[in-house]
């Protein structure tokens, strides 16, 4: 009996991600969701600018790139033009909560019927580990060499909690990839976000705390421990809305 298989929405190719990176798992959660819901042939994904820009090399369905931060503007238009399709964005913390904050807030406030997969790894990965809007206080990065200082850099931005205030938003949950149990919860949340769109319920967002061992300067196992022991204290898991 087959108990595990590659899902049809993922190509059978190795990814370019660093050892211990969370993107591979998060990509798979999206692909499994698309297959479980049977929507591969009507799904349109928006790949971000960042490490996951070539997500379309791994996902076996229609995809578009978007300029850095503009994924939700692009997704808004695609969904309005093709309301029968299922449209989602996959965005990092810099994309969604720094350069794209405006697009994020306004797409959410319009209640666009979209699903958002928000990868929070508290750092800019592709560009070499700079300070992200979600970097923790004290976190050392290429551009916060002494660690994030609230007086210099402000505080970790809790965009999910901010978005939860908007009436156009129907669902927000923060999940994590730091152990298999949490990955299963993440999978349920991703599926919920897509199901909401199928049910025309409005804007849904799943924030996924995801390890970046390379730019956290940690071994993969230690990076998972860091999410569990440090990161989730700042970004508590669970349903936000």
């Amino acid at each position: 009996m087959k108990i595990f298989e590659r899902c049809p929405s993922l190509y059978d190719v190795p990814t370019h991600y660093c050892p211990g990176c969370g993107h591979g798992i998060a990509h798979r959660l999206v692909a499994e969701t698309v297959d479980v819901l049977g929507i591969r042939e009507k799904t349109i994904g928006i790949a971000p600018v960042g490490c996951a820009v070539v997500a379309y090399d791994y996902w076996n369905f229609d995809c578009s790139e978007a300029a850095h931060g503009r994924a939700l503007a692009v997704a808004t238009a695609i969904k309005r033009v093709r309301p029968q399709n299922i449209v989602f964005t996959y965005q990092g913390d810099g994309d969604l909560a720094a350069i794209g904050t405006n697009e994020t807030i306004h797409a959410a406030n319009r209640g666009e019927n979209l699903s958002v997969i928000f990868i929070n790894n508290a750092v800019y990965g592709m560009t070499g580990g700079q300070l992200a809007p979600t970097s923790l206080l004290g976190q050392k990065t290429a551009t916060s060499v002494q660690g994030r200082d609230k007086l210099l850099h402000g505080y970790p931005l809790k965009i999910s909690e901010m978005l939860a205030l908007l009436p156009g938003v129907c669902y927000i949950e923060r999940v994590s990839l730091h152990n298999p149990q949490e990955v299963l919860k993440a999978k349920r949340a991703v599926q919920q976000a897509f199901q909401n769109q199928i049910d025309n319920l409005g804007f849904s967002l799943v924030e996924i705390l995801s390890p970046c061992p390379t730019y956290w300067g940690l071994a993969p196992q230690d990076a998972l421990e860091w999410i569990k022991n440090v990161m989730q204290k700042e970004f508590p898991l669970g349903r936000i809305k």
């Binding site: 349109i44 578009s64 978007a66 300029a67 503009r70 503007a73 692009v74 997704a75 808004t76 238009a77 695609i78 309005r80 033009v81 093709r82 399709n85 405006n102 697009e103 306004h106």
Partner: peptide, 12 residues
């Protein structure tokens, strides 16, 4: 946002 929406609509 407006021009990125045009990008998305055209892509669709």
């Amino acid at each position: 946002a407006a021009i990125s929406m045009v990008y998305g609509a055209s892509a669709a």
